[in-house]
Nucleic acid binder design. Structure first.
Length: 551
RNA sequence: GGACUCGUAACUCAGCUUGGAUAGAGUGCUAGCCUUCUAAGCUAGAAGUCGAGGGUUCAAAUCCCUCCGAGUCCGCCA
């Protein structure tokens, strides 16, 4: 059932307007949908208030209970029972397919993409969770999603980590988590960096490129450790990939594209470098090949963009990368366009703001980062303390699930454009607009359902209170929210929706009895809360958050 | 200097796509609610020149322009 189009068609017929905009009244008491009559007063020469009044006599379909002119607005009150019956039955029938769509497009989403000389920090966590949630949401809309990551596993950073290993840890095996060990080598190097060591780093990089056996072996050893460590962190966070790319395997391949472009006159050679002139597009020029003939990040990105398209025949290519690289992606997409690569039209940069600390920006080289593994540990331990107060069973398992929910929800509730300061007290809270609040709401519903011993017949009749209607409207709107969230690449809209739904349920819960309601009403309300629990569970799952039957 | 993003309550943020009724949450604060289905909850209250100014419009937090402030980025890092 699509209420909006029913009302819009009704109004179109009545007013002869081509476009009708409906809006939501500020207070549910004022109705469910409102039609502002200002636009009509121009042509009809009557005041909007009069027009609204005159429209009150409009003939209503059965989906609409009544209309009422309130000031310059014509307000529609939907028939709650009819909508409730239709929406709840649909949810009970379709379960996790409610809100799902069919789509043929293939979309590749690239996220995390770490530099392998460092361990993962809070910024990677935001990136990974954002990428995961986005992938899930797109999948829910029927897209064939390929989850990909690019490991930046070569270059100066890796050489610095290698030199750090040789200088301070030669022959050692990791005693800590292996990626942390490699990151430590990097930090140790950085803290003692001199002109002399810089030269050594340069030599290592060159030797690596020339396939020097010893250097390559050392490199393999370190990267292997790093991936071992990453694997564990990814697993803990529920981050997965269908495809991992490695810079070391593709970094030379972009050069060919650039040289061809030079031949065709798309790029210019100037002062020994090959450059893309972009001032026409209001962008700074971009160097594509350095004067020593070696490639840059941009060079390999040109190749990778094409490679992704070839590998998977994708229709869209999304890059989840921090806003620091906004310019880089504008340039990349523009250069792809210059090269006349079809993929240029398929690319989208999902930019997100930095996660800062009170002390300022996180800098790996200075070691003042919030480590991903530490944060998981911290949030789990906070949840454990909380659970101990409640004398719960399965404390360990639940602590992990609840702790991660707090972390994940916090990372996904802001618009991706906003940068925020990470504040442990706020970020890891379990009360208010948090993951655990949503889980708690779900557990509450489950607890009621456990106490209801009899099977609940699918019968919906008496849901007429404001609190019930509020929930029904949200359930009705869920598919639209999901779709909008997917098409605009905005997972936070889903997070906000879940909060609204949980809040609506909790208000209902405190106001009305469910198990002690009289027979038909009880059945209707049970159906309502079953449907609610299905949506909470599914939507949290899309954000990568697990639910608990009790907590 | 240029480009982009952001500026909404004491604090953290929604709302801006598609302009519309008294601008919403959460945290914190104040006052209540556990002999009733889980109080990680709910109710009520205090709290806002929507950064500033101008423009468009019947109507602007929302669209346009200017300015101010913060952040990010700007040819051989990724």
């Amino acid at each position: 059932m699509n209420i909006e189009s029913i009302i819009i068609n009704l109004l179109k017929k009545q007013t002869k307007l081509k476009e009708i905009t409906l809006e939501n009244p500020p207070d549910p008491k004022l109705g469910d949908y409102a039609f502002p009559c200002f636009q009509l007063s121009k042509t009809s020469k009557k005041s909007p208030v009069e027009i609204a009044k005159s429209l009150e006599s409009i003939k209503l379909p059965k989906e609409i209970e009544k209309v009422k002119a309130i000031g310059p607005y014509l307000n529609f009150y939907i028939n709650p029972n009819r909508l409730a019956e239709s929406v709840i039955k649909q949810i009970l029938k379709e379960k996790n397919k409610y809100g799902a769509k069919k789509n043929k497009e293939k979309i590749i989403v690239e996220y995390v993409s770490p530099n392998t000389n460092k361990s993962l920090h809070l910024g990677h966590v935001r990136n990974g969770l954002l990428g995961t949630a986005l992938s899930n949401i797109l999948q829910s809309q029927g897209y064939n999603v390929i989850k990909a990551s690019l490991n930046n596993d070569r270059g100066t950073g890796m050489s610095e980590a290698m030199l750090g290993y040789l200088m301070y840890h030669k022959g050692e095996n990791p005693k800590t988590k292996p990626d942390h060990f490699v990151a430590q080598c990097y930090v140790d190097y950085k803290q003692s960096e001199t002109e002399e060591t810089k030269a050594k780093v340069q030599k290592l990089t060159l030797d690596w490129e020339n396939n020097n056996k010893e250097v390559r072996e050392l490199w393999s050893k370190l990267t292997k450790w790093v991936y071992q460590g990453y694997k564990e962190t990814y697993k803990n966070l529920g981050i997965e990939f269908d495809k991992e790319y490695y810079e070391s395997k593709i970094y030379t391949k972009g050069k060919e594209i650039v040289h061809q472009g030079l031949k065709k006159g798309i790029f210019k050679k100037k002062d020994g470098v090959i450059i893309a002139k972009l001032e026409k597009y209001n962008l700074p020029d971009k160097i594509l090949i350095k004067s020593d003939g070696t490639s840059l990040y941009m060079t390999q990105d040109l190749y990778l963009a094409k490679l992704k398209e070839q590998d998977f025949k994708i229709d869209r290519s999304i890059y989840v990368v921090a806003s620091e690289q906004d310019l880089h992606f504008k340039q990349l997409f523009q250069i792809l366009e210059l090269l006349d690569f079809k993929v240029s039209k398929k690319c989208y940069h999902l930019s997100y703001g930095l996660v800062n600390l009170h002390s300022g920006r996180m800098k790996s080289r200075e070691g003042n980062v919030i480590d991903a593994d530490d944060i998981i540990e911290e949030v789990t331990s906070l949840a454990r303390e909380e659970l101990k107060k409640r004398e719960e069973k399965d404390i360990e398992k639940k602590a992990r699930i609840i702790g991660l929910a707090a972390l994940k929800f916090f990372m996904l509730k802001f618009d991706n454009a906003t940068s925020f300061v990470y504040d442990p007290q706020q970020s890891l809270s379990f009360e208010g607009e948090t993951g655990p609040y949503c889980q708690y709401t779900y557990a509450r519903i489950k607890s009621i359902l456990r106490k209801c011993k009899t099977k609940v017949p699918v019968k919906i009749t008496d849901l007429t209170t404001g609190e019930e209607k509020n929930i029904i409207m949200l359930l009705y709107k869920y598919p639209k929210v999901l779709e909008y969230s997917a098409e605009n690449y905005k997972p936070h809209l889903l997070s906000r929706f879940i909060l609204d739904l949980c809040q609506a349920f909790n208000e209902f819960y405190h106001q009305h009895q469910i198990l002690k309601a009289e027979k038909d009403l009880k059945v209707s309300r049970l159906n309502l809360i079953i449907a609610t629990s299905i949506i909470i569970e599914n939507s949290l799952k899309l954000l990568g958050i697990e639910t608990l039957e009790s907590m």
